[in-house]
Every structure is written in C-alpha cells, then in structure tokens.
C-alpha cells in the first residue's frame, strides 16, 4: 500500500493565528507558534510534519487563504 505524505506551507505574514486550521487537522499536525509575526499574531506552523497526509482540510477552513498544500504518494519499500 502506498503511503501518503503531505506538507503545508503557511504564509506567516498573513496568518492571523485564528487556530481554525489547528482544530480542523485530523492528524494534529498544526499548532500555533510561540513567536509572533509582524502583526502580533501567533502564526500556525507544522508541529509534526511527518504526520501530515495532505488532506487540505486546514486550507479549506483558512479564512485568510494562507495555507498551500502539497502531497506525494510513496511506494512501499518492504
């Protein structure tokens, strides 16, 4: 069975740290950073990148369109 790996890129300049993406993530990949961006918001970042499955749920609920999603299918090497 092919394994799916995903990755997100958060535009941390426009992210307002609403944490809707954190709540929408089925694999608990995203968290809010301790650091703040220029506007003073704790932006979202990938806390557990290896768990991301590229489902794009976070991008779907992001009100500021600051998430880009990538996904690859890896062939099983057993």
């Amino acid at each position: 069975m092919a394994k799916i790996r995903g990755a997100i890129v958060v535009d941390n300049v426009t992210c307002k740290g609403c944490s809707l993406c954190v709540a929408s993530c089925p694999t608990d990949v995203i968290r809010l950073a301790d650091e703040v961006n220029a506007k003073g918001y704790n932006y979202a970042y990938m806390h557990q990148p290896e768990a991301c499955i590229g489902c794009a749920n976070c991008a779907m609920v992001c009100p500021d369109s600051c998430i880009t999603v990538y996904k690859v299918k890896l062939a099983e090497t057993v």
Binding site: T14, K16, C18, A56, M60, T68
Partner: peptide, 23 residues
C-alpha cells in the same frame, strides 16, 4: 501541489478579524 490560494484573490491582507467566516 494539492491546494493553493486562488489566483483571483489579490495579495491584499483581508481586514476581517481572525477566524471570520467572511474570509
């Protein structure tokens, strides 16, 4: 690439509050 910001959206940062459904 699976999902990216629509090309019709401008680069302007939306003025809505964080988490607003309008966005």
């Amino acid at each position: 690439l699976v999902y990216q910001k629509s090309s019709l959206l401008t680069d302007r940062v939306m003025h809505y509050c964080p988490g607003c459904t309008h966005g």
